[in-house]
Design a protein around this nucleic acid. Structure first.
Length: 541
DNA sequence: GCCGTTTTCGGCCCGACTGTTTTCAGTCG
């Protein structure tokens, strides 16, 4: 059977809800189902794939019994035990659980009263795409600007998944420090553009903007603002682990714990403070306790951008060219403080342009790029070429060997033979980098499936790089795959894939992906000074 | 039902807001 993580999570939550209504099973057993559902929903691997590979153990909260149920589910499409537990409950009961604010008890009450029709139910379920990270940033900035204008606000921050720099954001979370929390909540609820107020209390509120965006605020006193920041940054799993740990040490931690800073909060547990990007309960708590946190790469470490598209003239471009000239791109790179910058246009389409024409186009363009070099920046000659359906490249070797570096990427046939094609492309000695390796487009196209382990091993052995692409709807290689790749020793380059000058500022989002993958500067070749960088690419200086 | 540096038995995160059952259960993050 086909089953997404979300569908499986829903199946487990339904069982938990049935237990609650039938008053069978204890509260902790129910919590175990909900916990398993949470972990499955947040897993970056497909549970079905893990099951096929016998790796269900990788998901926390799945014990022997739960794994047995999932085994039955995938093999037969049903689980007898689940059906027994759910027996006697109407299907509308389970649909009602998807309505915000409706849990098992309320749903059962509504079913019994018989006043609910499926029609009004569906209209209450808000289900939109999640926001891309840069869009969420821009929205958050406007709200921050508004909140800062209140004289009652001492400090204000955007938290939640935005502060953790997750690739897509569901709602926006803010914290504020104030001596008069109630006044700040009132002020927040008067923000222009509000459609409705969902919840409003002494210290917190939830609103929906006319755009449909949900915004939460949590306000606290300055003396416990550190705990508030920590609490509302999450993730939920990270917080639960911390509080469980606190409990074992005879402490009770919450957003009210008297700590002015997050450092103080973590200090209570003798922990170093983990960067917000890695607070996902994937080992950062243990690393914090053992004082072994990674020193994550920072935006200031970046010394160049290698994936940039210019408007250099081209006959029959294979893909969309950039909007700005090479000269303008170089100037922007200097403004960004880069030591080197690489122009990587798409080559002419090989189906309509002869091999000889492609070679002479590459040669002519090389001279233009060469002429851009100045004392303040090194300008490099690259291309982003296609990996074709059979694994061949769209540009002949005679042209590739004249480049400083070559990026190869799949731009068609995103479902076919990915492993084989990537491996064939990597075997070409001129190919240095695989661009946007999984080819996902957020909210549009899922990651391609491939044998990443095989690809990672090959990259390490043969000095090949994977790209972390900072384009807003790519953020590819994904953070979780970055982390696994780093365990094999893979090196990366973080690029923006900018098609216009302003997109060169997206580097910070590429860096955040690397950080979420626990990447350090040593792992990212474009944090290296030009001497070391050039050595890797065998570029003559 | 899960899990392990006090434990293979005996625990399991914490607190705010809503609505109504005026003292708390249900839901959420």
């Amino acid at each position: 059977m086909q089953a997404s993580n979300q569908q499986i999570a829903k199946i487990l939550r339904d069982v938990a809800a049935a237990y609650i209504i039938k008053k069978t099973g204890n509260v902790f057993e129910i919590r175990a189902y909900e916990n398993a559902a949470d972990n499955i929903e947040h897993s970056t691997s497909e549970i079905k794939d893990l099951w096929e590979e016998g790796k269900l153990d990788e998901i926390p909260g799945l014990g022997q019994k739960m794994q047995g149920y999932l085994d039955e589910l995938f093999k037969t499409g049903r689980v007898k035990h689940f059906n027994d537990v759910k027996k006697g409950l109407k299907s509308i009961f389970f649909e009602l659980l998807d309505v915000p604010g409706v849990g098992p008890k309320t749903a059962q009450k509504l079913v019994k009263s018989g006043v609910i029709s499926l029609g009004d139910l569906k209209s209450k379920i808000i289900k939109g795409d999640r926001m891309l990270l840069p869009y969420a940033f821009a929205q958050a900035q406007r709200i921050l600007d508004y909140l800062k204008k209140s004289k009652d606000v001492l400090e204000v921050h955007s938290l939640g998944s935005l502060r953790r720099m997750v690739a897509t954001i569901g709602d926006l979370d803010f914290s504020a420090s104030s001596k008069n929390p109630q006044k700040v909540v009132d002020y927040f609820c008067q923000m222009p553009g509000i459609d409705r107020i969902i919840e409003k209390g002494d210290t917190r509120a939830t609103i929906i903007l006319q755009s449909g965006l949900q915004v939460d605020i949590l306000v606290g006193q300055p003396e416990s603002y550190g705990a508030l920041l920590q609490h509302f940054t999450g993730s939920k799993a990270h917080n639960i682990k911390l509080r469980t740990l606190a409990q074992a040490n005879g402490l009770t931690l919450s957003e009210h714990t008297k700590t002015k800073t997050e450092e103080e909060f973590y200090k209570l547990l003798n922990m170093d403070i983990p960067a917000s990007e890695i607070r996902e309960d994937t080992g950062e708590i243990e690393a914090s306790l053992n004082h072994k946190l990674p020193k994550l790469v920072e935006i200031g470490d970046i010394r160049g951008d290698l994936h940039l598209h210019s408007n250099y003239p081209i006959k029959s471009p294979s893909h969309g060219p950039g909007a700005d000239s090479i000269e303008e791109i170089v100037k922007k790179a200097i403004d960004l403080g880069y030591e080197y910058v690489g122009i990587s246009d798409h080559p002419p389409g090989f189906t309509s342009v002869s091999k000889e024409e492609i070679i002479s186009w590459v040669q002519k363009r090389a001279k233009v790029i060469q002429s851009m070099n100045t004392k303040s920046i090194r300008v490099l000659n690259g291309l982003e070429i296609d990996i074709l359906g059979n694994g061949d490249l769209s540009v002949p070797d005679e042209a590739l060997e004249t480049l400083d570096y070559c990026i190869a990427g799949i731009h068609s046939g995103h479902r076919n033979d990915i492993t084989k094609r990537l491996m064939l492309a990597l075997q070409n000695p001129h190919v240095d980098i695989v661009s946007h390796p999984t080819n996902r487009l957020l909210n549009e196209r899922d990651s391609s499936e491939a044998d990443w382990e095989e690809i990672f091993k090959y990259c390490v052995k043969n000095q090949k790089l994977l790209e972390i692409n900072g384009y807003p709807n790519r953020l590819d290689l994904r953070d979780d795959l970055v982390r696994s790749a780093l365990e094999y020793g893979v090196k990366f380059v973080i690029n923006t894939d900018a098609h216009e000058l302003s997109q060169m500022d997206n580097m910070r989002f590429g860096v955040s992906v690397a950080r979420r993958g626990w990447g350090e500067d040593k792992d990212i070749v474009n944090t290296w000074d030009f001497t070391n960088f050039a050595k890797w690419f065998k570029i003559k200086s």
